[in-house]
Simulated assay, not measured.
Amino acid sequence: MPSHNMNTVLIYVEKYKKWVTSNPQLAGDIESTVKWLSYFTAGRINNSTLMSELVYSMSNLLVLFNDRIINANTQVETKLPKYHSKIRIWLTVLEYSEVLLEISASKLWGETGKWLIIVILQAFKSVMRLLLVHRYKERVTQSPPIPPIKRDKISDKVETIEKDGFALKRSKKVVRKVNSGGCSQFRSWAPIPPLGIDDQQTTIDLTPNKKIILAETLYIIKPLLHLGCVSVSGQKQWKSWFLSLIIDLASLKLYSNETKAVTLRKEEFDEISRRRVALLLYILRSPFYDNYSRMKIYALLKMLSRNVPLARMVTDPIIKYLPHWQSTYFYMWSS
C-alpha cells in the first residue's frame, strides 16, 4: 500500500514537472499571486507576521523549485562543480527563509533564541559565501545566489527549440534539426543557444582580481563584524551603524576603482548597483531612523496623503506597518 501511494505521488510529480516546463510564464503568474498573498495577510489575521513570512518564503521557494525543474528539462547542464552548485542552492534557500526562521525562534525562545539563530545563520552564510569567493573564484556573490529565471524569455526560447531543434535526453544539449531554417543557403548552422545562458559569460575575462576579492570579502564579513559590535556596544547604537556604513563604502570604493580596469558580467554589475542603491536603506536602520528619519518619513507620507488624489490608499498602509517593517527587516546588515 505505501509503495502504491509513493508511485502515485511520483506520477503527479512528473506531471507537474512537465506542466511547469511547458508553461513557464503561467507558473510565474501563479508564483506572483502567492507572493502577493503575503502582503494581503499582513495585519489581517492572528500571528500575521509569522503567516505573511511563511507565505512569502514559500512563494520564493516555489520559484526556486520551478526554476530548477525548468533548468533540468530545457537547459544545458551547468558547468559548475557539484559542491559549488549545492552551496548556491542552500544559500538561496536560506536567504528566502531566514526572516521566517528568526521570527519563529523569537516566538519559541524569545529574544535570546532569536539572536542565537541570527548568529548561526549569519555565520553559516558568511562561511559559504567566502567559499564561493576564495575556493570557487566567484568575484561578486549575487543576492540571491541563484536569481529567478526570466520566464518571458524562457517561453520564447522553448518555442525556438521546439521548432528548430531538440534536446538530447542525457546531456540536455540542444541540437538543431537538419530540416530547420528553410532553404539550406539561408539556414543557420550555429547551435541553438541554451536557455538562461548569457552570451557575455563566454566572452568576458573572469580572472579573479585581488582588490575585487578584498572588496567582496569585506562585504561578506560585514554582518559578523556588525554582530560583534552590537554584542559589545548594544543594539541601536551609532558604533554598529557607522561600522557597517564604513565597510559598505570601502567595499564599493574598491569595486569602483577596479571596474575601470576589469570588465564585469552583467549579473556582477547589477549586483554592485543593487548594493549602491541599498545604501539608502541606512535611513531606515536604527539609530538613524529613531533620531532623524522617522518623523520626516511620516510627515512626507501624511503630506502625500492630504495633497495627492488616491495616495491615501498607499500611504495609510505604509504608515500603519512601517514600525513593524522597520523592526522586522532593518535590524540586521545581512550579506
Rank of each mutant, 00 (worst) to 15 (best):
I146T: 00
N291M: 15
S97H: 02
W325Y: 05
V230G: 02
K211T: 15
A215P: 10
S334C: 10
L284P: 09
A72R: 15
G43K: 09
L64F: 06
E53Q: 10
I272A: 04
I30H: 01
L284A: 07
L279F: 07
V175G: 11
W115K: 09
T315C: 13
I192A: 12
S38Y: 03
P144L: 00
F40Q: 06
Y331E: 08
S171W: 10
V277T: 14
Y12A: 10
Q142W: 08
L254D: 13
L227V: 01
K260I: 05
V76Q: 12
S38Q: 04
S240I: 01
L121I: 15
L80N: 02
L121Y: 04
G181F: 00
V20T: 13
R139S: 11
P323G: 09
N179W: 02
L225V: 03
Q201G: 05
I272E: 04
S286M: 09
E162M: 05
S97I: 07
M303R: 15
S155H: 07
L94W: 04
N46Q: 05
E162N: 11
Y12E: 12
G234L: 11
K35H: 00
S305F: 03
S293I: 09
L243H: 00
P148D: 01
W238S: 04
L10H: 08
W325F: 15
V55N: 03
G165K: 02
E98Y: 07
I89T: 04
A72M: 14
E77A: 15
Y39T: 08
P223A: 10
Y255H: 14
I117P: 11
L245K: 03
E271K: 05
I30L: 05
T259W: 06
T112L: 04
I220M: 15
I221R: 05
I161P: 14
T141R: 00
D156M: 14
E102R: 05
S155L: 11
R68H: 12
L300Y: 14
V76H: 11
Y289G: 10
P24Q: 09
L108S: 12
Q25L: 12
M128K: 13
Y298E: 11
I192H: 10
N5H: 11
S57I: 03
I161Q: 14
R187D: 01
S334A: 12
T41Q: 01
L284T: 02
